[in-house]
């Protein structure tokens, strides 16, 4: 009861801070455009099957007599090697990329955050053990580790997602640990400890809620990178499997038809570029707004 009041006191100013953040974010032109674009992408992702003019071309049909047609009114972005509408597939690809991107970041958070909090709030040997494991994972080039894991698990979109999560979580562990160490010394945590709150409860009801904000920021900045990595894995044949309209896979396939059909690699490539770009712009804006040194000077 007692410590609940304390944590509410800790949270209240954060809500105000959050509102302020949103306000500051929207003041920056580039960031505002990025935000609008992200809303649009989310809209597309949700309604892709209904927006697509040839929805059967997404997963079901092949239509080879119309193969590799240049963009025209019937097929806005042209057709692929099996005569499917690239526009419909690119639209649907938005859903796949956003979904897998968010999920991969989510899984990394699920692994990374608790580990970081435990490391930061526990005895030195627990801390050391967790952090050295983190170091080991950080010493692998991320893409290479993901490649290896995807190779073990077998190629599929889910496995690529898992592989990325496994190579991504240590970043969050590091951030959370740093936060947790400073929180450990704060009054409300000490108070909770004094009244005999169990260790795990301190971690999950005091430490984690209070250091989640910077992690969320980091995570939102990472979504772009994760989407790019998933595309790269699919490009290498370790991610999505045909006929899934994943952008990286589409580019990978399009390499074969590069000289006879420029539109085939162009549009999925632009889709990746735009999506990753707007997420990165948002992340950039967020960082600027949230960094105490540059916050008020906007």
């Amino acid at each position: 009861m007692n410590h609940q009041v304390i944590s509410w006191n800790a949270i209240a100013p954060r809500i105000k801070e959050f509102r302020e953040t949103v306000y500051l974010l929207k003041r920056n032109k580039l960031t505002r455009i990025a935000l609008l674009a992200i809303y649009a992408l989310i809209f597309i992702a949700i309604f892709a099957p209904w927006l697509a003019p040839h929805s059967t071309h997404i997963m079901m049909d092949t239509n080879p007599q119309d193969k590799l047609l240049a963009p025209c009114t019937q097929y806005l972005f042209g057709t692929d090697e099996l005569g499917r509408d690239i526009f419909s597939r690119v639209l649907y690809g938005t859903r796949i990329s956003l979904q897998t991107g968010l999920l991969a970041v989510g899984i990394s958070l699920l692994i990374g955050v608790p580990l970081g909090a435990i490391a930061g709030a526990s005895e030195w040997y627990v801390d050391e053990a967790i952090m050295r494991v983190t170091d080991i994972f950080l010493s692998f080039p991320g893409l290479l580790l993901a490649i290896a894991i995807a190779a073990i698990l077998g190629p599929s979109l889910q496995n690529a997602m898992l592989a990325i999560s496994i190579s991504w979580w240590p970043w969050y562990t590091r951030i959370v640990r740093g936060q947790a160490i400073s929180l450990r010394e704060r009054q409300f945590v000490k108070a909770a400890k004094a009244i005999g709150t169990p260790h795990y409860k301190i971690i999950f009801s005091h430490i984690i809620p209070n250091c989640i904000a910077p992690v969320i920021v980091q995570a939102s900045m990472d979504i772009g990178g994760v989407i790019l990595t998933i595309a790269a894995l699919s490009f290498l044949g370790l991610g999505a499997q045909p006929p899934t309209p994943e952008w990286g896979l589409m580019i990978s396939t399009s390499r074969t038809y590069f000289l006879s059909a420029w539109w085939y690699s162009f549009f999925p490539g632009m889709a990746i570029l735009i999506t990753v770009l707007v997420f990165n712009l948002l992340g950039d804006g967020l960082r600027e707004v949230l960094d105490p040194k540059t916050r008020k000077k906007q």
Partner: peptide, 13 residues
């Protein structure tokens, strides 16, 4: 921001 968002394998081609 754009340079870190471009799929390098795509721009290479």
């Amino acid at each position: 921001v754009a340079t870190v968002s471009i799929p390098a394998f795509w721009i290479g081609l």
